[in-house]
Design a protein around this nucleic acid. Sequence first.
RNA 1: GGCGCUAUGGUGUAGUUGGUUAACACGCCGCCCUCUCAAGGCGGAGACCACGAGUUCGAGCCUCGUUAGCGCUACCA
Length: 503
Amino acid sequence: MIRVRFAPSPTGYLHIGAARTALFNWLYARKTGGRMLLRIEDTDLQRSTEESTRSILEGLEWLGLDYDEEIVFQSDNAPKHRAAALRLIEEGKAYRDFTPKEERSDANVKQGIAERAREHAAEGRDQRSNPYRDLSPEESERRAAAGELFAVRLKVGREGRTNFVDAVYGEQARDYAEIEDLVLLRSDGHPLYNLSVVLDDIEMGITDVIRGQDHLTNTHKQILIYEALGAEPPRFAHLPLILAPNKGKLSKRKHGAVVSLTTYRDRGFVPAAFRNFLALLGWSPDTEQELMTKEELVEKFSLAGIGRANAVFNFSEADPRQWTDAKALWMNAEYIRTMPLAELVPFVKAELRAAKLWREEYEDDDRAWFERAVELIRQRFHTLKDFSEQGRAYFSDDFDFDPAAVKKNLHKEPRLRELLPAMAARMEAVEPFTAETSEAALRAFAEEAGVKAGLLINASRTMLTGQAVGPSMFDVFAVIGRERAVRRLQSGEPWFGFEAETV
RNA sequence: GGCGCUAUGGUGUAGUUGGUUAACACGCCGCCCUCUCAAGGCGGAGACCACGAGUUCGAGCCUCGUUAGCGCUACCA
């Protein structure tokens, strides 16, 4: 049976790239009838936080990605990892390196690597010319027993190469000469990433490792560890990376909230929409269909559909309307206006509740009205936030007037100040009050008053909703209802300060 | 520095064993619809398929080279 895992390190919120890795693992597990496991790689005690773990879990839940077994916390396995490294020394597959630890600050890691590489090349030294590599076991034991500090390094063979077939990138090979004797255990006894991953994957019975392409070359090292351990390596599938608009790394530090999955939840994305968008970043189905439900994604998913080139996540920090990828925004709007109303309502409810606009009657006596209102306004909304912002006037009398709308639809024609209350008086007598009857009343009134219907329609829109744009006005009348419509048409609020302005 | 990966319109992608006017979606522009804005319908601009050679009757697809971007190269993960 196929067993995959998502193994994030809890050093911040869930990055959208990581979320996409989780999604692909999950899709693969569900597609193949396998199991999806979760492992929190919290071995970096300095940077790992519980809050981060919680946020990752929340993010996965929001995306609808579940897992099948208990969560594994990598730090719990550290003693086992240490023991395994020590065992490799006994078996002669690893050795103690007594070289004093070099302190290297985060900032100059790259530089240090380049410098060291240059020195080595100049001296004609090989990656594995460690003086302790061939120290006799007795001597090594003696120095360790004497309390000397040592790191444990894997003894990489002199001749040979590692090979594996990546499900995405194809055949991969690497000469041993290009792989250094990597450190398995730090001199303070702390197991390192490559060792921990391999050991945990073995223990969890992982059959397929699906992860970011940044691990592609590290895979060779890990294969060496599998071999030293006498274990069969799993299959590997590396995913292309997600890049920032400048084709650089999409980082939490540089790009902020756009890379955090929780941002999408907080800014009104429907999870199904974001999941759908994420699935299309680096993967494509063999049909041209792009809108896919969770079930359809599972059905169509295959490793063969994963591309090899990194994908650019397009957004603009300067333009608020493009705070995230335009296609993601479009997809969210598409979901909001086309998903089954019953699935949308809980999200709208949560949004209205958060904005203190929710009323229990919406699920009870006013349920039919509520659904009708949501159906009407969702047609032109892009995020769930719109229900409490642009849509506020449908749920509350306390809404703001857009100054531009007031100016364009009301102040431009001063006569409206008298016409609208007069029209309201007419509306009061309309029975029943529907889109059709309100339209008939408005048009009749316009004709008598000798003005264009459009003038009254646009003015009504602003009086009733505070805005210049919105659904067909007669539908708005019907949804807002006679009582509220009349009251709003008579309101003096948009006219406050009007004289001062025009004189 | 070394090694590796990648390269199709602004973005995401499709291009099956080499033979097409290089396809789809988002975005952009225009028209229609119309009470506004969307949606929808119709149409359009935008790609010498990174560049240069080669193989071939024929190359986006194969080969080599170049360039660029990215990744790895840590007693980080």
